[in-house]
Amino acid sequence: MRLHLYTSALTTEAGTVTAQALTDLVRSIAGATENVGGIAFGIALLLFFFLFFKSRYIPRILSELGLFASVVWTALYFASLIFPEKRAVFLYMCFPPMGLAGVITGFWLMLFGIKNQGGDDPIRVSSEVAAY
């Protein structure tokens, strides 16, 4: 199947809309979407690293680094919604810690897996003890 690209002007009730204008509109929407997606990503990783921190499945230093990176990431993505002119600076600040935390955690989980103390799940055991 061939790829079809329409480059002619489109006619609507309001008049003629050029493909260029539609492209610019989609691009501006995509810019805002990227910001919202970045905030969702930051909140997701914040929760995941919080659960890693609580469970001690990975070393504490790693989960603390992840928590720090997620907080910085989320805060700076919120800030770039308010100060879009400083977006490049914010991205320059929030990418290194998140990249570091993400890559190290990924390699840690790939190489060592999660730390399960003595074969028993500490959370389950503690809740069972509490119930008993």
Partner: peptide, 16 residues
């Protein structure tokens, strides 16, 4: 909750 936020990000990133 984290999974829902993550899936939201994945969808928005793909669309972007």
């Amino acid at each position: 909750l984290a999974m829902i936020f993550g899936l939201l990000d994945a969808g928005l990133a793909a669309w972007y």
